[in-house]
Design a protein around this nucleic acid. Structure first.
Lengths: 136, 136
DNA sequence: GTAATTAACTTGTAAAAAACAAGTTAATTT
DNA sequence: AAATTAACTTGTTTTTTACAAGTTAATTAC
């Protein structure tokens, strides 16, 4: 039964995706890296979402373990730790964009700029490329 | 501060989306409805994922409250309760498809049929329409 | 060159949520 | 009328999260 369960967890792509980054705080960390250019532990903390220090540490650890983000010493200031999206992490852009499209459509108080949403609808690939470029 | 927090939750489309359906079990319930044609409480329970009865009830309640699914008495057997995706729920198809694409790409043991993934890559709109049709 | 500050955490504990097991209710079906 | 099905609810234990405080190691400020 355990085997069957495990097999299922691995086999279903939605379950697999969720296992790797399908948690409230993981989403927000990835969002901060992907769209807000955040790179440091403190920046994630100060994002104003109210994540606890221990939870943030735990999520960063898990995301790294799963290969979604990587962690290196900042080459400029070696006292800092630099987090960034791996290519596996960057490939989550379409997932995030789909969530942005859905969220902005259904939230009457969305803060997503109308222009961005229109561009996203008309040419998602262009938006994806732009984000990729900014992440280099 | 609470106000600011709330405003933020509403304003960011990713946070908004997650709030409405960004939880492990919500994803799986939506998946079961969207891709596996499940409609009844018992079917979700028996999906083999191991969700607890109270948690399932709670998720169904929340998803309904948020307008992602709807709940009616089954017209055929009025002892049964029929759950289905609202249009708001059906609009999550692109989010789920993006997760499927990511998951199947990175899971070496994916069970997603290669053909489906190829079709998804080549013509996501076609797949979306097919799923919509099946949900009618 | 010592003192304060910054950055990235860890540790302990209380509160909340999830998992597990059992029971309830109302409509069939036998 | 008794058993079964379907959809839950209600305790209780276990796990996770949130909150508060402390640690360490490298700057920066004086």
């Amino acid at each position: 039964m355990v085997h069957k369960k495990n097999k299922y967890w691995c086999g279903c792509p939605i379950r697999f995706t969720m296992k790797h980054f399908g948690d409230k705080w993981s989403f927000l960390v990835v969002r901060d890296m992907m769209f807000k250019g955040k790179k440091y532990y403190n920046e994630f903390l100060e994002a104003g979402e109210g994540i606890s220090t221990n939870i943030l540490a735990s999520r960063l650890r898990d995301l790294e373990k799963h290969g979604v983000i990587s962690k290196i010493r900042d080459p400029e200031k070696k006292s800092k730790v630099l987090y960034s999206l791996t290519s596996k992490g960057k490939e989550l852009i379409p997932v995030m964009l789909a969530m942005i499209e859905w969220g902005s459509k259904h939230d009457p108080n969305t803060e997503a700029p109308q222009e961005f949403i229109e561009n996203l609808r008309n040419n998602p690939e262009k938006i994806r490329q732009d984000i990729l470029k900014r992440l280099e």
